[in-house]
C-alpha cells in the first residue's frame, strides 16, 4: 500500500483532464476528421466546465477532509455548517425576485447567503469556540435555510420561476463558462489557503480539545479559519453550480487509508481526489444517453453518495458492535 497517493492522483488528473475535453454529445477525436466548431466547443464549453470541475472538486474534497478532522468524525461533511443551504437560499431568492437573468446576481445572492450563515455561526458559537455548539448551530441554520427555501418555492410567482428554481437546486456544471471560473477560482483558492493554515491545529485536535489547547492551539482562531474556509469554498461552489453534495463526505474516505491518517495528510490528496471525482462524474453525466437532456451532476453524486454513506454507517456500526 503506497503511503503517498498524491503522485498517483496527479497522474490520473493529468490523464483525465485532456480526455474529458474530448467527451460529450459531440465527440472530438484529435486524430480523426475535423469536427465543425471544435475550437469553440473546446474553448468556450468544455475547458471552462472541466476547470470548474477541478476547482469545485478540489475545494469540496479538501473541505470535507478538514471538516472530518475538525469534528473528529468520519461522517462529517462540509454541509454540516449549514452554509450550502444558506447559499442555496440566497440563490433561490435571486430567482424569486426575477433578477436571475443578470449573470452576476445569482452568484452574488448565493455568496450573501453563505456570508449570512457564516456570520450567524460566528455570532452563535464564536466566542466559546466549542465544537458541539458550533455543529448544532450549523444544523439549525441548515434547517432554517431549508424551510425558507421551501417557502420561497411555494410562494413562487410563476411556474417558470418554479421550474428554474427546482432545476437549479439540482447542481450541475452544464452551460457554465469562463465567467463562473473567474468567480469560483479565487474564492476557492482563498478557502484552500485557510484550510492549509488550519491543518496543524486539526492534527492536534485528534487528541481532543484539551490536549489540542495544551499543544498551543487557539480554538477561536481555528474556528475562524474553518468558517472562512468552508464559507468561501462551499459558498462559491453553490454560487456557480448549485447544490453538489457527498463529494466532501466520500473523498476523504477514499484517500485516508493511503495516508498516515492525520487530517493534514488527507487535505491535499482529498483535494486532488475531489477534483478527479467531479471531473469524471461530470464527464459521465455528459455522455450518458438520457432522454430529455443530460443527467444533473448533483443528482448523480447523490445517487452514488447515498449508498456510500449507508455502507459507511454499516461499517462503523460493525466496528462499534
Amino acid at each position: 500500500m503506497t503511503r503517498n497517493p498524491t503522485a498517483i492522483l496527479l497522474a490520473a488528473l493529468a490523464l483525465a483532464f485532456p480526455l474529458s475535453l474530448f467527451a460529450g454529445q459531440v465527440w472530438i477525436d484529435p486524430f480523426g476528421p475535423p469536427v465543425p466548431n471544435a475550437t469553440a466547443i473546446l474553448m468556450e464549453l468544455r475547458l471552462p466546465r472541466a476547470l470548474l470541475a477541478l476547482i469545485l472538486g478540489s475545494g469540496l474534497g479538501a473541505a470535507g477532509a478538514a471538516m472530518q478532522g475538525y469534528l473528529r468524525n468520519p461522517l462529517a461533511d462540509p454541509g454540516l455548517f449549514g452554509i450550502a443551504p444558506a447559499a442555496a437560499l440566497g440563490a433561490v431568492l435571486s430567482f424569486y425576485t426575477g433578477y436571475e437573468s443578470q449573470a452576476l446576481t445569482l452568484p452574488l445572492f448565493a455568496l450573501v447567503g453563505a456570508a449570512g450563515a457564516m456570520t450567524l455561526l460566528a455570532l452563535i458559537a464564536g466566542r466559546s469556540g466549542g465544537i458541539a455548539l458550533f455543529t448544532l448551530a450549523g444544523m439549525m441554520i441548515a434547517s432554517l435555510a431549508g424551510a425558507l427555501t421551501s417557502l420561497a418555492i411555494s410562494l413562487s410567482p410563476n411556474p417558470f420561476a418554479l421550474s428554474e428554481i427546482v432545476t437549479w437546486l439540482m447542481g450541475a456544471l452544464a452551460d457554465r463558462g469562463w465567467h463562473e471560473v473567474r468567480l469560483a477560482a479565487p474564492l476557492t483558492l482563498l478557502g484552500l489557503f485557510a484550510l492549509w493554515r488550519a491543518a496543524p491545529a486539526l492534527d492536534a485536535l485528534a487528541l481532543g480539545e484539551a490536549a489540542a489547547r495544551s499543544l498551543g492551539v487557539d480554538p477561536a482562531r481555528l474556528l475562524g479559519l474553518m468558517v472562512v474556509a468552508i464559507g468561501l469554498i462551499v459558498g462559491s461552489g453553490v454560487a456557480v453550480a448549485g447544490m453538489i453534495g457527498f463529494v466532501g463526505l466520500m473523498v476523504p474516505h477514499f484517500v485516508r487509508p493511503f495516508t498516515d491518517q492525520r487530517p493534514s495528510a488527507t487535505l491535499l490528496p482529498s483535494a486532488l481526489a475531489g477534483a478527479l471525482l467531479l471531473l469524471v462524474a461530470d464527464c459521465l453525466c455528459r455522455i450518458l444517453p438520457l432522454q430529455g437532456g443530460e443527467l444533473r451532476l448533483g443528482i448523480a453524486l447523490s445517487l452514488a453518495g447515498a449508498p456510500f454513506f449507508l455502507r459507511l454507517l454499516l461499517k462503523l456500526r460493525r466496528e462499534l458492535a
Partner: peptide, 12 residues
C-alpha cells in the same frame, strides 16, 4: 499535558 480521556480520533 496529558488529559484523562486519552482519546485519539484517528487510528494513527
Amino acid at each position: 499535558y496529558l488529559p484523562q480521556s486519552g482519546e485519539v480520533a484517528w487510528n494513527l
